[in-house]
Amino acid sequence: MWKEKAIKIFFTGAATTSIVVVGLIFLFLGKEAAPFIFSENVAKLFGTEWVPVSFEKEQFGVLPLITGSFLVTFLAILFAVPFGVLSAVYLSEIATKTEQEILKPLIELLAGIPSVVIGFFGIIVLSPILKNTFGLESGLNAINGAILLALMATPTIITISDDAIRSVSTSYKQASIALGASKLQTIWRVVVPDALSGIIAAVMLGIGRVIGETMTVLMVTGNAAIITANPFDSVRTMTATIAAEMGEVPFGSDHYRVLFCIGIILLLITFGLNMIAQKVLRRRGV
C-alpha cells in the first residue's frame, strides 16, 4: 500500500516539476526586470534606438530588436510554410511507401542538426552566395537568417502537418474520388481543408521554433539594431541581443535589467503562440 503511495508521489512530483520550473523562470525574470520596469527609466524601452553602452547617453529602445525578430521570423515562415506544407502533402498523399521510408528519417535528421552548425553553414556558404547574387556589401543579413531558420522550422511543420493530413478519414477521399475528382482535386478540396487546423497548429509551433532560435541568427543576421523592413539589411533579434550581451553586462545595471525585460517579451510571445497552437489542436480533438 505504501508502495503505491510512494510511486504516486514520485510520478506527481515528476509531472509538476516542469510546471514549477516554468513558474520559477517567470518569477526569476520578473524579479530581475522589476527594478527597471518600476523606475522612471522604463519609458526608454519604447525608444527606437538600441545603444546600451555609451559614454554620453544609453538608449534601451527594444523596438529595433522586436522588428528585427519579426522580420526574420516573418520571412522564415514565408519560406517554411509553403515548403513544409507541400512536403507534408507529398509525403502523406503522393509518395510511395519506399519514398516515405527514406524521406521521413531524413527530415527528422534535419531537425537534429545543431543550430551552431547551421549558423556556420550560413556564414561560409549562404552568405557569399547572397552577397554575390544580389550585389550586397554583406551577406550577413535578415534574409540569410530567415532561410536558415526556415530550414530549421520545416521539420516541425512537415511532421505535424503530415500527422494531421494522415488523420483525414479515407472515406472522404473515397467519396471524392468516386465523384470523379482527381487526386489533386481531392487533396486541395477535401484533404487539406479537413486537416487545416492541424496544419495551422504546425505552423504556429514552427513560428515558435523560429522566434526562439538564437545561435543561428546571432551568427548570420549581422546584428545591426536598426528598424527596417528590407530583407537585405542586417538586423539584430531579441534572442541574439540577450545571448551576445548577457555575458558582459555589469550585474544589476539598467542594461542588465533591460535584457531581462527582453526575455519576458520573448517568453510572452512564444507562450502566446503555443497557447494558440494548443487551442487549435484541441479543437480538432488531437
Binding site: S169, S171, Y172, Q174, A175, S176, A178, V190, D194
Partner: peptide
C-alpha cells in the same frame, strides 16, 4: 458507400 461519408 456503406458508412455514410458526407464531407465535413
Amino acid at each position: 458507400f456503406q458508412r455514410s461519408n458526407p464531407f465535413p
